[in-house]
């Protein structure tokens, strides 16, 4: 009873501060501050980092990591994991290249093929996990290796090059950056993030994804079709891997066979840094969005401090550990 009264009091005096933290989440605010600090640190240490070109590089790198992260957020909230997004993204991209270069199809057909293929891999993951009850780690480890091999098989271990900017078929590059160097990709990423957030928080499938991550069996025993909802999370992750593939092709033009392994970790790390719990049931798109930029600012910024790219992986590891520790520490405190 005393507790009830106390809570009622807190509610009536709800400040702007609590309104903001309730809407975005405290951890999200913390990592936004961390992001700003990291950026400020690089900017202070290196004048070159402050140039417009650097911003463009950060943006370019954030597209594919961003889409991977947004998609896999859904899977992680169900309590699962998708290790295949990185390789399935590159497999789809290289297949799109084959369709364009070898079959001489128009670019838009290649892009559709990319989306269908990546979403299809997501559907297979969904069926394996939700219907056949394979552990997500194992199921997606399998499809990760399959897609990595499949890309090389389809391309015959050849590098595929997409049309260059300014060439007859180079229009697709403007989806992410106009010829006048305007980063249209940011708009697309933001729009997709908003869409993902709406799906996650305001649709049935989103609500069920949270419910499954919190307690799958109780959700099933409530009469919810858990198989469909859980599978949808993997389909969404696959769909976003398709967008990531298009973003990668548009940004970097050249797709090499057998690549993509490790990209999924950038996406997953962004999600975890963003406060989504690997135990499932808790997560936010805003968090993932900020997490993505922490990843890409580190990736682009560290070379300006004369640190080679492998330092990015090294330091990212510490960032992930720190983020997870903060999450656990916070939960433990809340439970005390």
């Amino acid at each position: 009873m005393a507790q009830t009264i106390k809570k009622a009091k807190i509610k009536s005096t709800e400040s702007t501060y609590t309104k903001i933290t309730n809407a975005i989440g405290l951890q999200q605010i913390v990592i936004l501050i961390v992001l700003i600090l990291i950026y400020a640190l690089f900017a202070a240490a290196s004048p070159a980092f402050r140039s417009g070109n650097t911003m463009t590089s950060i943006m370019d790198a954030s597209y594919y990591v961003g889409f991977l992260g947004l998609g896999v957020t859904f899977v992680i909230i169900t309590g699962g994991i998708d290790l295949s997004i990185g390789t399935s993204m590159m497999c789809a991209a290289i297949t799109g290249g084959v369709v364009y270069n070898e079959l001489h199809a128009p670019v838009w057909v290649a892009l559709v093929v990319i989306m269908v293929m990546a979403t299809g891999v997501g559907l297979i993951n969904g069926i394996l996990v939700a219907k056949f009850k394979l552990p997500p780690f194992i199921a997606t480890l399998g499809t990760m290796m399959i897609t990595r091999g499949l890309g090389s098989i389809i391309s015959n271990v050849k590098t595929e090059t997409f049309p260059l900017r300014g060439s007859a078929n180079g229009w697709y590059k403007s989806i992410f950056r106009t010829d006048g160097n305007f980063p249209t990709g940011v708009i697309l990423l933001v729009v997709m993030a908003i869409l993902a957030s709406v799906v996650l928080n305001h649709t049935k499938v989103g609500r069920y994804i949270f419910a499954i991550g919190s307690n799958r069996e109780a959700t099933r025993l409530s009469g919810v079709n858990v198989v469909t909802s859980e599978a949808m999370a993997y389909v969404i992750a696959g769909f976003f891997a398709g967008l990531a593939a298009i973003a990668y092709a548009a940004t970097y033009t050249t797709i090499m066979p057998g690549t993509g392994a490790g990209f999924e970790m950038d996406g997953i790390a962004a999600v975890v840094v963003g406060g989504t719990s690997l135990a499932g049931g808790v997560g936010s798109i805003v968090g993932t969005f900020i997490g993505v930029f922490i990843m890409t600012v580190l990736k682009v910024g560290l070379p300006y401090l004369d640190l080679q790219p492998h330092y990015q992986i090294f330091i990212t590891g510490f960032v992930v550990l720190l983020a997870v520790y903060v999450d656990i520490y916070r939960n433990r405190k809340a439970n005390k």
């Binding site: 919190s214 069996e217 409530s222």
Partner: peptide, 29 residues
């Protein structure tokens, strides 16, 4: 705790979990 309720979700979400269809406007809840 294991099979009946979802402790991490709100009272409201628990009550309507089974059938959200009557609480949607188009695709949105």
């Amino acid at each position: 705790k294991q099979f009946g309720v979802i402790v991490g979700m709100s009272v409201a979400d628990n009550v309507v979990l089974t059938d959200l269809n009557r609480y949607t406007n188009g695709p949105l809840i």
